[in-house]
Simulated scan of single mutants.
Amino acid sequence: MTSAYPTPLDVLADQVRDLAADLGEWPSRNRVIKTFKVGAPKASAVLDTVKASGFDPANPVVDDGPEDANEIAAPTETDAVNPGPEITSEVIEESGAGTSSTKVSAPADPEPTPDAPTRSERSEVGWRAHSWALLLIAAGAFVAIWGGWVGLGKLTGFGEIALLPGIADEFTIDSAITLPLGVEAYAAFALRVWLSASRSDRARKFARNSAIGALVLGACGQVAYHLMTAAGMTSAPWQITTPVSCLPVVVLGCAAALTHLMRDEEGR
């Protein structure tokens, strides 16, 4: 959720400059949107501002101190709070000689500390850990959903068809696979747009309604197939065949509408 008090452009430019220096390259507009919770126009504006300033993320400018080697910087408040390592001195007196000398010991070099991982590295490691669980869940759901939709398609009249009749009659395909490819793939696509914070309210609203509708249709299709299979039916009644036969057309229309909404938004 974005803040009610938006970040000023100059402050956001410094944050984007630090992110680019950590990455060693320019972040994408979507990366800026997700990292700093800003809209697409502001993300584009801050990227243009930082690039126009001459900043190079591959070779960040480092301040080497004052140009004059003889110039001595005055102590600051930070130096007073965090003084440098203390140099200890030890007075050595020579017996009988009446002379003394001072021995100065230099501070020991601090032990090197390992660099902490950047935010992008931590997020990438976390995504890898979550993706394994998602792939495992998706594999089990894919087998069940695919089998249910293909079986329902056969009960409602879907089957092998010749894609090139009269040209290559032997090249056939089972049209029942269009049901899981269309309905379930669109449900995942619309769900992704719905949960994306960088999309407009209009696109997210359409994606939300159509994603819920696709998931409900998918659940109803699985229920209908298993009920008819358990009852020993070899063909579906017309009340089920009619909506199932219209699903490819409905899914195509929803996918085209959502794509146009997203392209209109990016073109503004």
Rank of each mutant, 00 (worst) to 15 (best):
M1I: 04
Y5V: 12
Y5D: 08
L9P: 09
D14A: 15
V16D: 10
L19V: 08
G24I: 05
P27K: 14
A40C: 10
A40H: 14
S44N: 12
V46F: 13
V46W: 11
V50F: 12
S53W: 10
V62T: 13
G65E: 04
G65W: 05
P66T: 05
P66S: 05
D68K: 12
D79Y: 11
V81T: 13
N82M: 15
P83C: 12
T88D: 08
S89H: 12
A97R: 09
A97S: 15
S100G: 05
S101D: 03
E111L: 15
P117T: 05
P117K: 11
H130V: 08
A133D: 12
A138L: 06
A138Y: 01
I145V: 13
V150S: 04
G151W: 00
G159K: 02
I161F: 01
I161R: 00
I167C: 00
D174M: 01
A176P: 03
T178H: 02
V183N: 01
E184G: 01
R192K: 07
F206N: 05
F206P: 02
R208P: 02
N209A: 08
A214Y: 01
A214T: 02
A224P: 02
Y225L: 05
H226R: 09
A230L: 11
W238I: 12
I240A: 06
P243F: 01
V251H: 02
G253F: 06
L258S: 13
H260V: 14
H260E: 11
H260P: 01
L261Y: 04
E266V: 10
R268K: 15
